[in-house]
């Protein structure tokens, strides 16, 4: 039954990975940049959730939306101060057009980590669980109630986010800008608002992932590193900019890691996803679900 246990736990982790990764994918889809500070949005969420509940004693259920807001706010501010100049004056950037986003978001990541270290301190804060500790026995499986709840909430949030992008008014604007930035702006879409919105949503979702995982993985200044690296693997594997691709890749990664850690090697568990990624790119440079663009 160990296999089934591992698969279920892999899926649970996978849904939380997905929550992280789709924000990154969304930003790439719309702005064509990789946000190297994505892990720090996760960190903001983990701290917001843990510190708010630990210091004020309010129900962790209220802390979840607050974590989302905190992440959105950080996302919004980053977009306004650092990312907007990139596309506002894109045509005039003769120099360092592609490198800018990588470097500036890397700087942002470093800044947020060192600020957290300086202001909050290096200690870890574990957020309270949403439910009292419980174990659910499902036939032969023993599942941890809180983990299951986190995954369920993750699925619900994913569904809302995907629904929002697919069907809402603003979601359609996002899709339009993702397909053709110039065209969308000519057709009257507010490109600046869409870009801010995308960063806010992305920051919020990463923060929610941080909050949902805070009871299991305590918040520290550098807690964002591991989900960030996973997200990079996921979005490239799934095809940059493809949300369904990211979700499938997240679940795949969760299960592969969970099984491989036991049956191949625990020590090298973090490398399996990376090796799969490199292999996939050798044969499909656009990722599993990515579309090959016209180059010439």
């Amino acid at each position: 039954m160990l296999v089934a246990d591992l698969v279920i736990n892999g899926l649970i982790i996978g849904f939380l990975y997905a929550l992280m990764a789709i924000g990154l994918s969304l930003i790439f889809g719309v702005l064509r940049i990789v946000n190297f500070a994505h892990g720090e949005f996760y960190m903001v969420g983990a701290y917001a959730y843990s510190l708010i509940t630990l210091s004020s004693g309010i129900s962790p259920w209220f802390a979840l939306p607050l974590a989302f807001l905190a992440g959105s706010l950080v996302g919004l501010v980053s977009e306004r101060l650092l990312v907007r100049p990139l596309y506002a004056g894109y045509a005039n950037w003769g120099f360092m057009r592609d490198e800018y986003a990588v470097i500036v978001t890397f700087g942002l990541s470093l800044l947020l980590i060192s600020l957290a270290d300086k202001i909050i301190g290096p200690f870890s804060y574990r957020g309270p669980t949403l439910l009292p500790p419980s174990r659910i026995e499902l036939g032969p499986f023993l599942l941890n109630g809180n983990r299951l709840l986190a995954a369920a909430l993750g699925i619900a949030i994913l569904a809302i986010a995907v629904g929002f992008v697919r069907y809402s008014y603003w979601g359609k604007q996002i899709q339009a800008v993702a397909q053709n930035r110039l065209g969308a702006s000519l057709a009257g879409a507010n490109v600046n608002v869409v870009s801010s919105l995308v960063f806010a949503i992305s920051g919020g979702l990463a923060a929610l992932a941080g909050a949902l995982l805070a009871p299991f993985i305590a918040a520290t200044p550098d807690v964002g590193l591991f989900p960030a690296v996973k997200s990079y693997v996921i979005v490239v594997l799934g095809g940059l900019g493809s949300i369904p691709g990211s979700i499938v890749a997240s679940l795949l990664l969760g299960v592969v890691e969970s099984l491989a850690a036991v049956y191949i090697s625990y020590d090298y568990r973090d490398t399996f996803g990376l090796v799969v990624l490199i292999l996939v790119l050798l044969f499909r440079p656009q990722g599993l679900f990515g579309q090959k663009g016209r180059e010439v």
Partner: peptide
Amino acid sequence: IVLRLHGPYLALTTLAFAEVVRAA
């Protein structure tokens, strides 16, 4: 290996390579 990759794909794949080597 990365001959056909550009921009963000290249950055992320070399990042993956870096992590594999370090983890190994």
